[in-house]
Each structure stands twice: as C-alpha cells, then as structure tokens.
C-alpha cells in the first residue's frame, strides 16, 4: 500500500482528550485539506505524523513501512507554524539542503532567483514564510505537511503558494491545514474536518455549517 496512512490516533493533554481514534491518509497526487476550530487538534495531528509529538497511541505507515516518527522515513517534510530555517543560512544553501531533486523549479521563480544569496536574517517575516513554504513544497520528500502556510502572506502570495501546490502535487501528496478555509477548499482534492476529537469527511461547504465549523446552522 503506497501512501501515507495514520490510524487510531489518540492524544490528550493533561485531562483533556484532543484526538480520539483519528484516521487520515494521503496519496501522491492529492491534496488533503484539514480543517477544524481552534484547539481541535489539527497542528497536534500534523506534529504526531511528523514525529515531534509523541501520541498516546498511533499507527503510522509510510509507503508500506511502519514508523514511530514520520521524519525518520526521510520522505516527509513539515512546515511548522513558526520560522524554522536558521538565520545564518542563505536561500541557495537551503535549496541545496532541502530541494536537490526540484531545485530547477525553484530557480525559475523570480523571487527565489532574486534572493539566492540573501540570508534568512536579511528577509522580512512574510518573505521568510513564503520561502519556507516553497522549500517545503519542492522538498525531496514525497509527502508534505503544511501547517498554516497562508498565515502572514498577502493574497498575491497565497495564490502563488496555491499555484505551486497544484504544480507539485503531480509527484507529491500534501496535507494542508489553515484557517483560511476558502483557500483550503480551493486547493484541496479532499477535505477532512476535525471536530469533537474525531475526523469527518466534508463533501461541500454546507457540511462545514452542519458540523459547526462555519456559522449559520439552525436546528
């Protein structure tokens, strides 16, 4: 079974259960949008998949191999919410570290070509975020987890990120979570909602109202 597959995720913080028997899968060639209210466990789920948080229980399978931590597969990239590339690294060095296979695609992007010699220290917060997003989208891994990739970005850059996700999904699988739900709906092939500690498949925007993610539901 090729693909990323996580099942039976259980996690709680102190006495509060955040995730209960959560299931998620992602194949190469698809974008899975992960939505949920604040504190519903979206970021926690991504961190559990990547391996930076230890779940109470989980079963993680990447391309037919079981892993305790996703990053050990060396086939999984994760864009955290905060800046993660050290300031002293320049853009070209970062491309050579993360994107050996798809470096040419990155060099074609005007913004990247213009800042190849710039260190991350010299860039603004949103420029860093944009570059980190691009680096993860074109990273060498088959599966990419993007945690709030659209935050801090202007609408033009959000569209640019969506365009690159669509270009790269031919040879990659993406799991994206963000509060800009319209952007998530636009870029995703499939939507999963985290609600009441469980996951629900969303077929249209009305389902989001029904499950209480969007306002407007009256019983």
């Amino acid at each position: 079974m090729q693909g990323l597959f996580i099942d039976s995720v259980n996690q709680s913080f102190a006495d509060r259960e955040v995730l209960s028997s959560v299931y998620l899968n992602c194949n190469v060639g698809e974008v899975v949008g992960l939505l949920g209210r604040n504190g519903s466990g979206k970021s926690t789920l991504l961190k559990i998949i990547f391996g930076s948080i230890k779940a109470k229980f989980k079963y993680l399978n990447i391309n037919n191999k079981v892993y305790s931590k996703g990053y050990l597969s060396k086939n999984l990239s994760y864009l955290p919410q905060d800046k993660f590339i050290p300031d002293q690294i320049n853009v070209l060095q970062a491309i050579n570290i993360f994107c050996k296979k798809h470096a040419t695609e990155l060099h074609r992007i005007e913004f990247v070509a213009k800042h190849l010699k710039s260190k991350f220290y010299d860039l603004s917060g949103s420029e860093c975020r944009f570059l980190e997003c691009l680096l993860m989208i074109y990273s060498d891994a088959d599966y990419v987890l993007l945690d709030e990739p659209f935050s801090q970005l202007s609408p033009l850059l959000v569209d640019e990120i969506k365009r690159h996700v669509n270009l790269a999904k031919v040879y990659k699988g993406f799991i994206i979570t963000d509060h800009y739900y319209k952007s998530i709906l636009a870029v995703s092939d499939r939507i999963v909602l985290l609600h009441n500690k469980c996951n629900y498949t969303i077929n249209n925007e009305d389902d989001l109202v029904t499950y209480g993610y969007l306002p407007g539901f009256t019983a």
């Binding site: 990547f50 391996g51 930076s52 931590k69 990053y71 050990l72 597969s73 060396k74 990239s77 994760y78 955290p80 993660f84 590339i85 050290p86 570290i97 993360f98 993860m136 990273s139």
Partner: peptide, 12 residues
C-alpha cells in the same frame, strides 16, 4: 529552535 530544520532532513 533548530529542531525542525534538522528533523526535515531526517536527523534527530
């Protein structure tokens, strides 16, 4: 502060 930089390369 650099955990994700290394973990994204599969290094703990």
């Amino acid at each position: 502060s650099t955990a994700y930089f290394f973990k994204n390369q599969g290094i703990g």
